[in-house]
Amino acid sequence: MHTLFAQQRLSQYAEAREYVELGARLVTVQRLTGLRPPDLHRWFFRDPRQAQFGRPPNAVQWYTLANLLQRVDACLFAAPFQRLITRGFAPKAALLNAYRGYLELGLCQPRVDFDRAVDLAGHIAGLWLTHTAHLIVLTCPLCACDTLSTQGLKTPLDCPFCQLQSRYPRDKRVRVHFPTPVPRQLAMPRLGISAFCPGLSQPTSTPPSFSRRAQR
């Protein structure tokens, strides 16, 4: 079909738009979509100041030297990504869904931006930036949390979630990043006729009286 090339290019632009909306840099969008930098500048980075430049992230070095909150955030993204890949999701779909789920956690200051997430996912699945998987998601035998570790290990070393539990009572930064959830007040279920007549379940200032004396 004569429109095949146009359809492929439009799907590339639609894919690039999703990455840009999540804060991806130009080099990251280029690697994921295959679009040329001039095309990306024309459609998404018309202001040169919006196109961030610099060295691409290196997940292996970064995760080894990262602090506790950064490693915990990396695991919160990496574990759903690995789970989606195992269930047969396409790598890019798993990347987008895992990162959006990470953002929906509502952390006060997320430590993993989209470029870092792409780098982590690439080193887990052996895609995009590398042809070999260097990281793996393992389950900690002590806390049963999924945590990142170096490829080749059977049990994770220095589980960040175990460290998080021990530091939570005495580290204010950890408590600010992961605040204690406020218990929700569950609404009473509507039973009987009140389920079909919502007005009957609303309390009034003066409850009705059905005695004959009150009706006189």
Rank of each mutant, 00 (worst) to 15 (best):
R55W: 02
L4G: 12
L186W: 06
V72G: 05
L65H: 13
V27L: 04
H2Q: 07
P56D: 08
P203W: 08
A133M: 09
F114H: 13
M1K: 03
T132E: 02
P37Y: 12
Q82N: 04
D171S: 14
T28Y: 00
L84M: 04
E104W: 10
T3C: 10
A79L: 03
F5W: 12
F81K: 02
D113Y: 01
A214L: 15
A121E: 04
A187Y: 06
F5N: 06
A98S: 15
F178W: 12
A66Y: 11
R173Y: 09
P179L: 14
P110R: 09
V29N: 01
Q61M: 13
G192T: 10
F178P: 13
S11W: 11
S205P: 12
R31Y: 08
R87Y: 10
R116L: 15
R111F: 05
A59S: 15
L129S: 12
D115M: 13
I124V: 13
L120V: 08
K172H: 10
V20Y: 03
V29Q: 03
F81Y: 15
D47I: 03
F210G: 03
A24W: 01
C145D: 12
A144T: 09
A66Q: 10
F77M: 11
A59K: 08
C75V: 13
I193W: 00
V182H: 14
A98V: 09
G54P: 09
P183S: 09
N97G: 11
P183C: 05
V27A: 00
L32C: 01
A79T: 12
R36V: 00
L40V: 05
V20R: 12
T64S: 14
Y13V: 05
R167L: 15
R116K: 06
P48N: 02
H131V: 01
P110K: 09
H41W: 04
L105H: 11
E21A: 11
I193G: 00
W62A: 15
D113P: 10
P189Q: 13
G122K: 11
G152D: 01
K92N: 12
P181N: 11
M188L: 10
Y19E: 05
P208E: 07
L65D: 04
P48K: 04
K172G: 07
P189E: 04
F196M: 03
G106A: 08
G126C: 02
Y168D: 07
R87P: 06
L191W: 13
Q8C: 13
A117E: 07
S166M: 00
L26C: 01
R100A: 00
C162A: 13
T155P: 10
Y63T: 08
F81P: 08
A93C: 02
C140K: 02
V182Y: 02
A93D: 09
A6D: 11
A24M: 01
G34L: 10
D146T: 01
A74Q: 00
N58W: 02
A24C: 01
L65G: 08
